[in-house]
């Protein structure tokens, strides 16, 4: 949709802000099903939306990426200590990028990566891909910003109708 111009999105909003983003390759989507081509598509979208120079990849990445530890039922298994010990590798990987935002295209990843930042005091924020796309397009409503940090929370808020009396 971005490639054929149906979604008009660009990274102008981040030219001066220079907020740094990294992206989690979900095992389920990349290694276990569609492979590196979909990881490239993902990067194309992220780079378009946040700006080439504001995207920092983790190492290793794509099909060789580490699992975040949210998959396989781990989030639901009632073993938070083991789950966070597992996720420490992912946490260190994210911290090494220096990014303030981790984009997670998968649900399990979002919950786990978010929890890791809180638990280990990482200070990074965890957002869905579509949240950032909408932010960049200036169409992210005021109630749709739960996971943004204070730096972006007030940015490009679209117009809201006056409440009817």
């Amino acid at each position: 949709m971005i490639r054929d111009g149906r979604l008009k999105v660009n990274s102008d909003w981040n030219k001066d802000l220079k907020v740094k983003f990294t992206v989690q390759d979900p095992c389920q989507l990349v290694r276990k099903s569609l492979g590196d081509p979909v990881a490239e598509d993902l990067r194309f979208v992220v780079r378009t939306v946040v700006g080439e120079e504001n995207f920092v990849d983790m190492t290793p990445n794509r099909s060789n990426n580490y699992c975040c530890g949210g998959g396989g039922g781990f989030l639901q298994s009632g073993m938070p200590e083991a789950r966070r010990a597992y996720g420490k590798l992912k946490f260190d990987q994210i911290m090494a990028t220096g990014a303030t935002y981790a984009i997670t295209p998968c649900h399990n990843c979002h919950a786990q990566v978010h929890d890791l930042s809180e638990h280990y005091d990482g200070g990074y924020h965890t957002v869905h891909l579509w949240t950032i796309i909408c932010l960049a397009m200036g169409i992210l409503g005021p109630n749709e910003r739960t996971y943004l940090g204070p730096d972006l929370a007030e940015l490009l808020i679209p117009e809201i109708k006056e409440a009817d009396e």
Partner: peptide, 16 residues
């Protein structure tokens, strides 16, 4: 042990 529940089925081991 509960280790079998701590593997996330991520398949990185197969990949490498």
């Amino acid at each position: 042990s509960d280790w079998v529940w701590m593997c996330t089925m991520c398949q990185r081991c197969i990949y490498v």
